[in-house]
Design a protein around this nucleic acid. Structure first.
Length: 720
DNA sequence: TATCCGACCTTTTTT
DNA sequence: AGGTCGGATA
């Protein structure tokens, strides 16, 4: 094999990283600097120099999409399947370990995976069963508490409460939640990681197997690792393993879900002989775009430090558009996209990025009106849909009767006369005897401790599930799914739902049958699990990211967060306003503000050719009116790369005024304008009405709040 | 058991 | 504004 081919087409630093001697290496890789490329080539280098075969390599990422892309790029480079290599997400790999070592990990063979919705339902139940006030102990907060404890590697008994009764109670809830999960063989997402870590920590012989095997560990997006993931990598690497980590501290935007940028510094301390390389040459964006990105991010402190550069030319300036309101903003963007299309560009080279999901609606309205195909990313995923989870719950229960989450979900869906009273009885018994709801139901039927009518209903339910079971073994997966959906009565149930909704649900259920029949359990991923169990795991771990159809041309709408890792010729970032971006909830805290700035940096660096930024004078959000100040991030960009867009009266402006009926009297004032009043001081124009001597103006004064004034007497100063 | 009403919330997302 | 959720009601 010609080793040099792996190094061809790499720049000097990339080559240095790829061909570095085996050992611990941290690659600080800027946006668009070819970071995944380096990682993939590093793997090929290991193999082609004979340092290891695929069997000795473990490469880990955060999303299934990234993992799939990595694997396929490796295989392209090697020109053969990379069998035996472990490539996957932290959760996927942890899952694989736990399936292989379920006994050592103290799990039932058929353990089921809880997604966060399942988890939150269980937590609600636990709170209720402890007769706590739900309004005082919000399930959300408790879920957050439990997950962050687990992220820290903490079990209830390890948590120091310092006698704080509040915390003691939280720990008690955590405990109760965990024992419910344990007795019903349920593993939440974080638990996958925690158990996998404990497996390594406590089972020396297991750890040894994997330490021997995986001498070469590689991590992408290292800045996104949390404490537990870091600990897992560290224990697996041991003394003899080597870790190749690629990341960018400037793109760390997930601290709010436990990601620790500090892991990049820690890595250099904790891992022997760690070297640091910087990939700073950018192959994506024009010089102007990079200049904007570099200048912006330089406002952050405590960076590892790096500055992107490019051989590319200066390129176009960055457009900056001040819109009247969010409709005008949307119209501006859509107009630009439409024009680009007419000029021979593709829709799919365009992305519209926003800070919060709620901003997509107005954009969608405009883009729909223009008849432009688009896709909104994010939101409900396929396997998260209620009807899909219902159907899967039938399956899960049939393969693993102790799965309480599924039992609860479907015991009375569709309604079959098993009401709250009966359920309460089942739950109590389950808790008292530390058994699953299914076992509890069996005993309840034996002891006849509920009314006859409920008893019969319960019996019918158990029989329904039990009858599914023998059928499932022999027939093909799609057929299994079909039988489940038909026998469960879900179709009839949703048919009764009025409107489009029920219809859509039934279509989704059809789609589920297709998904099941097309599912092909990868032996590497799922070992010798039976196909049905493998499919259920798959459904839990891959929430069904709908693959972008490559043959349709559409504009992408997404949050800045979901844009990370992507690139587009043409990028619009909308809503650059104080309070929105940076978001209100981040603006009080310096660290959070810096994360917002990194988010902006991520957004800017998505653009290859053209970047446009917009903000508004007036925005309606959550039913309230805002007259926001321009985002500080605009002010942090170098003026020389910006170009302010002023529309002639023929385009956006006239459309705006005619459509919105906000044409104001000719007062010489604009909405959002700053004015000064002799008595009330400084304020901002909120509204105008009437004409001539009747004209009135509403002003939000800094000191005294909002007031209506007759313009003729107000004697406002507009320049000060 | 279905449906309606009002209280409540609303940053970002993956697994 | 718009969606979700839980409780009250028919």
């Amino acid at each position: 094999m010609d080793v040099s081919s792996v190094l061809e087409s790499l720049n000097e630093v990339q080559r240095e990283a790829v061909a570095a001697p085996t050992g611990n290496l941290l690659v600080l890789a800027g946006a668009g600097s070819g970071k995944t490329r380096v990682l993939v080539h590093r793997i090929a280098w290991y193999i082609q120099t004979g340092q290891t075969n695929p069997y000795g390599i473990l490469a880990v990422t955060f999303t299934n999409k990234a993992a799939a892309e990595m694997r396929s790029r490796i295989e392209v480079l090697l020109q053969k399947p990379a069998g035996g290599m472990w490539v996957g997400t932290f959760h996927g790999l942890a899952h694989r370990l736990l399936r292989a070592h379920w006994q050592e990990a103290g799990l039932p063979e058929n353990f089921q995976i809880l997604d966060s919705d399942d988890q939150s339902r269980i937590i609600k139940r636990v709170i209720r069963s402890m007769s706590l006030d739900e309004s005082q102990y919000s399930p959300r907060e408790i879920q957050w508490f439990i997950n962050s404890q687990k992220d820290e590697g903490l079990r209830p008994q390890n948590i120091e409460t310092h006698g704080d009764p509040e915390k003691q109670l939280l720990v008690k809830i955590y405990q109760a939640y965990q024992s419910l999960c344990d007795r019903s063989g349920l593993v939440d997402f974080t638990e996958l990681l925690l158990r996998a870590h404990e497996l390594f920590r406590d089972q020396e012989q297991v750890l040894e197997i994997y330490q021997q095997r995986f001498r070469h560990l590689l991590v992408d997006e290292f800045q996104d690792t949390n404490a537990l993931q870091y600990a897992w990598l560290r224990i697996l690497a041991g003394q003899n393993g080597s870790l190749f980590a690629v990341g960018d501290d400037d793109q760390s935007i997930y601290s709010w879900r436990g990601a620790l940028v500090e892991n990049m510094q820690r890595f250099q301390r904790d891992f022997d002989g760690c070297t640091l390389l910087r990939l700073e040459q950018n192959y994506r964006s024009s010089a102007n775009i990079l200049k904007a990105a570099n200048t912006l991010i330089a406002n952050n402190s405590s960076r590892l430090g790096k500055e992107l550069w490019t051989d590319d030319e200066e390129g176009e300036k960055i457009d900056l558009y001040l819109a009247y309101n969010e409709h005008d903003e949307a119209r501006f963007v859509v107009d630009r996209v439409a024009t680009a299309k007419i000029n021979g560009n593709y829709y799919c080279d365009h992305a519209i990025l926003y800070r919060v999901g709620a901003q997509s609606r107005v954009l969608e309205e405009q883009i729909m009106q223009a008849g432009i195909p688009y896709r909104v990313f994010g939101g409900m995923r396929f396997y998260e849909r209620a009807e899909i989870k219902d159907a899967l719950a039938y399956l899960r229960l049939s393969v693993f009767i102790d799965d309480d989450a599924s039992f609860e979900r479907i015991v009375n869906t569709p309604t079959r006369g098993i009401g709250q009273r009966t359920l309460e009885e089942l739950r109590n018994r389950a808790r008292q005897d530390n058994i699953s709801l299914w076992q509890s139901a069996v005993q309840t039927i034996q002891d006849k401790t509920v009314p006859e009518r409920a008893l019969n209903a319960l019996e019918r339910f158990l029989k329904l599930i039990a009858e599914l079971r023998p059928d499932l073994k022999d027939i093909e997966l799609g057929e299994v799914m079909d039988v489940v959906i038909k026998n469960s009565g879900l179709i009839d149930h949703f048919r009764k739902e009025k409107g489009e909704k029920g219809l859509a649900r039934i279509e989704n259920l059809d789609e589920l049958v297709v998904a099941a029949s097309e599912f092909d359990a990868d032996k590497e991923e799922y070992g010798d699990m039976d196909p049905l169990s493998a499919f259920l795991s798959h459904a839990a771990l891959e929430s069904g990211d709908t693959q972008a159809d490559s043959y349709t041309d559409y504009v992408s709408l997404m949050t800045l967060h979901s844009a990370k890792g992507l690139e587009f010729e043409n990028v619009f970032i909308v809503g650059l306003e104080e309070g929105l971006f940076p978001h209100q909830r981040s603006s009080g805290d310096l660290l959070q503000l810096e994360e917002e700035r990194r988010l902006c940096y991520v957004g800017i660096t998505r653009a290859k050719v053209k970047l446009s930024l917009t903000y508004t004078q007036h925005r309606r959000l959550h039913g309230a009116e805002y007259y926001p100040q321009p985002s500080r991030f605009i002010g942090e960009l170098p003026v020389e790369v910006l170009s302010e867009v002023r529309l002639g009266s023929s385009s956006g402006l006239s459309m705006f005024t005619s459509n919105e009926n906000t044409s104001k009297s000719d007062t010489g004032l604009n909405l959002g304008q700053r004015v000064n009043h002799l008595k009330f001081g400084e304020g901002i124009v909120l509204n105008l009405e009437g004409k001539g001597s009747n004209a009135r103006v509403q002003i939000n004064f800094k000191e005294t709040g909002s007031k209506w004034l007759v313009l003729a007497y107000a004697n406002l100063q507009t320049e000060f």
